[in-house]
């Protein structure tokens, strides 16, 4: 198996290297990729959309359909993961683990007590016992709010600096995953539960598609944000900028929710109770 694989890879790689001899040199301003549509984007984006970050303008406006369907791909991935892994039948484990918070002693209760032991002194912990680590918990408690603030900045400031819905959404999702890793998944599910994650997956796509549909209702083409000027009371070019912001918020919500949902599903193998 190994020798043919090396042979295939080597032949394929040599063919690709051979083909690069016809490619434009690295950094050539006259490369075919840089002379077709991109000069129009670079020179006109500021005048047409009033968004200085050309990447954002192209992403959400010139190539709005592409980004809409990329968002739907991400949404579909989240839904696919749900249907592949989710176990709806709740199987109560035979034993439960509790930590006595003041002393740090761990208890295992084999017969389920009813009502479950949930007081201020006892904290339920995972069966795959993770040792209590004050350093990790405290450090992550400091990091999480600032990374969330930074994520909102990245989404909201995507017009003027590198950033946007995809990047900000991933940072926002990562902050929630960090919380789930540093504490445990049960604590994270209390604050950001599965239902909310799935609802937000759909809500982001709805915001994106709804912004496009609003343009239709105002008598323009789908995703033609210039028409939103009638609602927003701004001129058509500023309205494009606002439309892009709304779309980026929708993308950010979907990306954040899908990242969190993928983490919950994969880490708990679909049980959504405990894991990692």
């Amino acid at each position: 198996m190994k020798t043919p694989a090396i042979l295939i890879v080597f032949v394929f790689g040599s063919l690709l290297v051979l083909s690069t001899l016809d490619f434009p040199p690295w950094g050539d301003p006259a490369a075919p990729a840089s002379v077709h549509v991109s000069p129009h984007y670079i020179e006109q984006a500021m005048a047409e959309t009033s968004v200085p970050n050309i990447v954002t303008a192209v992403l959400a406006d010139y190539r709005g359909y592409d980004t809409l369907f990329e968002t739907i791909v991400i949404f579909t991935a989240g839904v696919a993961c749900l249907f592949l892994l989710r176990i709806f039948r709740r199987i109560e484990p035979e034993s439960r683990m509790y930590r006595h918070i003041p002393t740090g002693i761990t208890l295992r209760i084999t017969k389920p007590v009813s009502p479950p032991l949930e007081t201020a002194e006892f904290e339920r912990i995972d069966l795959m016992w993770v040792p209590y680590d004050l350093v990790v918990k405290t450090a992550c408690r400091l990091i999480v709010p600032f990374s969330q603030l930074f994520a909102l900045y990245v989404i909201a400031h995507g017009h003027h600096s590198p950033g946007g819905g995809f990047q900000g959404g991933v940072i926002l999702g990562a902050s929630i995953i960090l919380y789930a890793i540093s504490n445990n998944m049960r604590a994270s599910l209390v604050r950001f539960n599965e239902k909310l994650a799935v609802l937000l997956c759909g809500l982001g796509v709805l915001i994106y598609a709804g912004t496009g549909a609003a343009a239709i209702l105002l008598g323009a083409n789908y995703l033609d944000y210039g028409a939103l000027s009638e609602i927003l009371g701004a001129d058509a070019i500023a309205a494009r900028s606002f439309g892009i912001l709304m779309v980026e918020i929708g993308v950010g919500i979907t990306v954040m929710a899908v990242m969190v949902h993928l983490y919950y599903s994969l880490a708990s193998a679909g049980r959504h109770d405990e894991g990692l």
């Binding site: 992403l59 990329e70 991400i74 991935a77 993961c81 592949l84 995809f166 991933v170 990242m259 599903s265």
Partner: peptide, 16 residues
């Protein structure tokens, strides 16, 4: 930009 996030999502489905 879109491909990176889609790659993460497809990675999630592959791992599932």
């Amino acid at each position: 930009l879109t491909a990176i996030v889609v790659a993460v999502s497809t990675l999630g489905v592959a791992l599932a």
